[in-house]
Design a protein around this nucleic acid. Structure first.
Ligand SMILES: [Mn+2]
Ligand SMILES: [Mn+2]
Ligand SMILES: [Mn+2]
Ligand SMILES: [Mn+2]
Lengths: 216, 216
DNA sequence: ATAATTTTTTAGATAAGACTAAATATTTTT
DNA sequence: AAAAATATTTAGTCTTATCTAAAAAATTAT
């Protein structure tokens, strides 16, 4: 059994591995969890002891199969709860993350599997992220950043890279949502900003925005 | 904001006050929370500091209005989650308590009020206990223990005094559930055991059992 | 009214998890 | 290949919540 804190470390390391591969640095974990490197060192020693990751001094950490399984379960719970909040309790996609951060730590295998049934085995969460099934498997859909789309090309918005309330509210304000068609009209080479066509309206978005929208 | 531990203390004291009135002893709290009296002394000092209860050395504690409000909210959350688990996720009434003990500590006013809406503003939890509304009000239904019913009299089962899995499974096994009609056929004066008619079947139950069933 | 018993509080210890400051290792720059 | 900069670990402290053992207060029995 893992503590709330241990679970948060596992999840963060899991997400960091998904981006950077094996060998996650102490500092990057500290940054993600908004804590100090010294706290991270303490905790990864404990997690190595519990055999959910391998740790060699100054070499960073990598999850073991056991650790990855555990992390996947937490991600599954987080995303299923997000679907529940949006689909059943009238939450908007920018309101769910913080509550899901709490709910993901509830311990009850029956609870999460019945929730999955109740929601109709959703494959995606409200932000377009895949939901692992009971066995931890999920479909990895191909997607690219909107910022990589060429001028005059069109894509469908399938996900976001940043689930913060601020960013999602910005998208709402500009009528950008999952499933939406987006056409790049022009790209400013100086700052990478894009003028896009969405809902037959032209808007200009910064590189920072287009770097956080996934399209297909 | 209260910690998980503080919330559990508040809830326990609230339940003890409902039975014994003001001035709850250190020992009774320790017993309820399965902890040591010395730990209780420490915690009630902290809670007195936070003004959710009044504490005078050696005199026991009493909740303040603020403390009672806080405790009521936790009870509301606990019971709403129990309804959710039974009504929506196919849990049986003997499986919900432990999960609700975890869920009751999730912090999100919107979550709990939307859950209330989603469940259709239930008035009772799966064990017949009243659910406080948003303002903390709930209907106090009159009920008495089955053990106090006279011979040849009939009552309707409206609640249980013990929500442990063991006891509820015993009731299931004997087809005793909420809303069920129960007639006392005879009462054994020696040990207080009852022979009752339920579902047109005669069964004999001990005093301990009849002391944990509420009827109307 | 004393003595015995029970209850409650205090004192001191422990474990988890976090922090600061200092020490050490590693990486990058010159 | 040093020197400088950066990253990581260690040492020591703090808070929260717990515990055991001992002291003190309150209650009950004689
Ligand atoms: Mn999220
Ligand atoms: Mn999400
Ligand atoms: Mn319960
Ligand atoms: Mn209940």
């Amino acid at each position: 059994m893992f503590s709330l804190s241990e679970e948060n470390y596992l999840k963060s390391i899991y997400h960091l591995e998904a981006i950077h591969g094996k060998g996650i640095s102490t500092n990057s974990i500290a940054k993600k969890l908004e804590t100090k490197a010294s706290s991270v060192t303490d905790m990864i020693k404990k997690l190595a002891e519990k055999e959910v990751l391998v740790y060699k001094k100054y070499q960073g950490v990598s999850l073991t199969t056991l650790g990855r399984k555990e992390a996947t379960t937490i991600v599954r719970k987080h995303r299923l709860w997000e679907v529940f909040l949006v689909d059943k309790l009238n939450f908007s996609w920018d309101e769910v993350h913080d509550v899901a951060e709490q709910l993901e730590h509830i311990k009850s295998p029956k609870l999460i599997d019945e929730l999955d049934v109740f929601l109709g085995f959703p494959k995606m969460d409200p932000h377009g992220d895949p939901i692992p099934d009971k066995e931890g498997n999920f479909q990895k859909i191909e997607k690219r950043l909107l910022s990589t789309l060429e001028e005059h090309k069109t894509g469908i918005c399938v996900g976001v890279n940043d689930s913060s309330s601020d960013f999602l509210k910005y998208l709402d304000k500009n009528n950008i949502s999952l499933g939406q068609k987006i056409k790049v009209l022009s790209k400013e080479s100086f700052d990478g900003s894009l003028t896009i066509l969405i809902h037959s309206k032209e808007i200009t978005i910064s590189k920072k925005i287009s770097n956080n929208i996934y399209i297909q």
